[in-house]
Amino acid sequence: MIGLGLLKAMRVTLRNALKTPFTIQYPDRKVGISGAAKNEGKSPVGLIATQPVTAAKAAMSMYSVPVNIPQNRRFRGNEFTWYEDRCTGCASCAKYCPLGIIEIVTSPGGFDVQEGESYAIDVFDIDIGRCMFCGLCVEACPYDALHMGSQFERSKYERDALVIPVDELRQALRQPSSWFRPQFEERDYDPFRDGANDEHHSVGRHEKPDQETLDKRWVEER
């Protein structure tokens, strides 16, 4: 019947038109006076009294607050988290990378009683300009030294600046994602809620061996 279908369709459109939009403004959104006052930590009246310029800007919708959208905790972000104390320089990550973008140069001499013999790491460069964030390097790491990060706002003007050098990895904010790290989910660790995790002992799948086992493994057997 001509017309009835159109009316039904119009009903759906009307119902959706009355809803609040589901889109999210990013990276910031414009707020009015009440939102600006909330962001500044004041009451609206207080804001107008103390900061009339800000209040006037907010009234003309020129005041914006940043929007932070928390990702899920398995989110494979692009700031790799690397714990040097756990890394033995085995280069499993470099071997399993489908694109071959991890460069590792090691020199012998390092010694780590807890995790076995290790190498001193001179170069650990990840070229995230070519990285596709598949996470296979993290899956390959036998000592849980490398984790996916949680951040995603890392735009640069040059391609070369996208290579993360080893010094930057050492100083980077450590917010490991729980991609292929079930121990984080067992502990209910959420990088977006709990922030950085710098404690390298607690991020591994393996328990730290007691002194007796270590002596047996590394002293008596040698």
Partner: peptide, 27 residues
């Protein structure tokens, strides 16, 4: 969003492995 919960990516999932999936679904 559900995929991001499962495997950390929305489009390029790489969720499956030979013989199953890489990790159980989170709670």
């Amino acid at each position: 969003d559900l995929f991001e919960m499962l495997c950390g990516a929305r489009i390029t999932n790489s969720y499956l492995r030979p013989g199953g999936v890489f990790m159980d679904a989170p709670e």
